[in-house]
Amino acid sequence: MVIRNSCFLIVLIVLMGSFVGCYQRTVAPALTFDQKNAETLDNEIKKMEWD
């Protein structure tokens, strides 16, 4: 009984590991940005008279 449960647990962990491995698939790189410039631009956009 203990052996069967242990086997079951090991198989479960291997499957979870495979799932986690698959879930990490990412090809396109993350968007890089300059935080300070983004804030400056945000402020400039708010300051501008758009209409």
Binding site: L31, T32, F33, I45, M48
Partner: peptide, 22 residues
């Protein structure tokens, strides 16, 4: 980086979205 900076200023991030209500 230039594109990312403009995009982030206007649309934010997945955890903190923004929309440009000019």
């Amino acid at each position: 980086t230039e594109i990312g900076t403009i995009m982030t200023a206007l649309f934010g991030t997945p955890d903190d979205p923004k929309f440009p209500f000019f």
